[in-house]
């Protein structure tokens, strides 16, 4: 994938990060980037996606509660970026049913439950997490369609 994947640290402060992202992107000659945010970093990822709509290509949010900031919630109606929201089936902090609130805010978002993972998806099921994120980012518009070759060729 030639497009950079920006993984937001959980402690990110949106404004300076967005600024740095802009500088780095221009310097590196990239036209767009993907965003991956876990838990508390979700609101920052949403703000970056809203502020750089032409550059933010796709967004993955993992094990996060929907934002509570009413200004941000209101702005989400304008968010057009393809979004995947992930939850672990054993997550007690943000249980899978949290997805219903995300679907209310972003009706077009995809929700996937990572079976047998808790709040820290990437640690609990690293391969399953990486596979689903890469599947989505490789072609967000075609995500629902299985694009793997399942045939035994030889």
């Amino acid at each position: 994938m030639s497009r950079p994947l920006v993984m937001l640290p959980r402690t990110a402060e949106c404004a300076p990060l967005a600024e740095r992202l802009q500088i780095k992107r221009t310097a590196g000659g990239c036209e767009s980037f993907d965003l991956l945010a876990c838990a508390e970093a979700a609101p920052d990822a949403l703000r970056i996606a809203l502020e750089q709509p032409s550059a933010a290509h796709a967004l993955v949010i993992a094990a996060a509660a929907p934002p509570e900031d009413s200004t941000l919630v209101t702005r989400l109606a304008a968010l057009k970026i393809p979004t995947l929201v992930l939850f672990g089936t054993r997550d007690r902090e943000t249980p899978p049913q949290t997805s219903r609130r995300w679907r209310a805010l972003l009706p077009g978002c995809h929700v996937v439950y990572v079976y047998d993972a808790g709040h820290d998806l990437a640690t609990d099921r690293p391969q399953a997490f990486a596979d689903i994120v890469l599947d989505f980012l490789s072609e967000p518009g075609a995500f629902l369609v299985n694009r793997r070759d399942g045939a035994v060729q030889r």
């Binding site: 089936t89 929700v111 996937v112 439950y113 990572v114 079976y115 099921r125 399953a128 596979d131 629902l144």
Partner: peptide, 26 residues
């Protein structure tokens, strides 16, 4: 896994994908 997936399919009204160990659905 199958039991949990069946329960989820029965009780979750919003569409969901499943990244399981043995089964995957979008």
């Amino acid at each position: 896994e199958a039991l949990q997936l069946i329960r989820m399919a029965w009780t979750e009204p919003e569409p969901f994908g499943w990244q399981g160990r043995y089964w995957q659905y979008k």
